Simulated assay, not measured.
Amino acid sequence: MSGGIKEKKPLIHLPYLPMDGTLKDGTTVVLDRYCNEYEANFYDIVKSIVNEGDRFPREEMTDVEDFRSYFLSNDAFICTNKTTRELLGAFYVKPKFAGRCSHICSAGFVVKESARSNGVGSFLAQNYVYIARDLGYKASYFNLVFETNEASVRLWRKLGFKEIGRIPKAGNLKGLGYTDALQFYYDFETLPKTPS
C-alpha cells in the first residue's frame, strides 16, 4: 500500500456486475466482486506472480494474511470461467494517496499463468476504468509498470492511458536486473457513461 493508506471505502453497488465477456478462444467469463470462496486460488496466483519476480515490486508474499492486507484491503474483483468457475484473473482498486488526493486510485492485476495471452488481462483492464470511476475515483495512476512487462505496457497504451514518466532502474527484477518503470495516468472523466 502506498504511504500506509488504510482508508476503506463503503461498498458501492455496481449494477452491471456480474458481467459476462468472451476471451480470444471463445471461452465465456464472468467479472464480479471478489468473494471468499476464491481466496485460496487468488492467493496462489498472487504468490506465483510475486515469486516470478518480474512484474510486482514485492520480493515475497509471506502468507495469506500478507496477501489479504495487500490485495483485499479495499475493493477486489475476479474473472472466472463461466462454465467451470475457475479463477482466471483478478484486480484490486484502492486509493493511491491519502486525504485530499484519495480521488486518484491505483490497481494491481494478476492473471493465472495458464490463462495468459487469451484476453483475460484486456477484459479486466477495459472494465477496471469503469469500475474505478463508479467507485468514486476521478483518475488512475500506475507508478511502477516495468518496461519489460511488454503486455502490460501495450495494454495501457492501447486503452488510452497517458505515459507521464519514467523511473530509471526502478526495480531489481529477477533475471533482468535493474529495470526502468513507466508511469501511466488515466482521467476517468473522459469515459463514456457506461461500459460497452
Rank of each mutant, 00 (worst) to 15 (best):
V50W: 00
R58K: 15
T27V: 06
I78P: 03
G175Y: 06
K96F: 15
G177H: 00
G21K: 11
A125I: 09
N41V: 11
P15W: 00
S122D: 12
C79G: 11
E60D: 14
E59I: 10
D187T: 12
T194G: 06
E163A: 05
E39C: 07
P15Y: 03
Q126I: 04
L11I: 14
L155T: 02
N81F: 01
S48K: 11
S196I: 07
A40D: 13
I49C: 00
F42N: 02
G89S: 07
L17C: 03
C79L: 14
G177E: 04
V29S: 08
T62L: 13
R85T: 11
P195Y: 02
G53F: 09
G53Q: 12
T80C: 11
L159H: 04
F91T: 01
F91Q: 05
D25R: 03
K158I: 00
L191W: 14
R154T: 04
D20G: 14
D44N: 13
A76W: 01
C105E: 14
K82A: 14
T62I: 15
T83E: 07
L124K: 11
S102C: 09
F77M: 01
R58G: 02
C79Q: 08
K158M: 10
Y128K: 08
A132Y: 03
E59K: 15
L14D: 05
L11A: 13
A115T: 08
Y92N: 12
G4Y: 06
C105F: 07
N74H: 12
S106P: 01
H13S: 13
C101T: 01
G108P: 01
Q126E: 14
E60Q: 08
E60H: 03
C105K: 06
T27A: 03
E60C: 04
V50C: 10
G3A: 08
S114E: 12
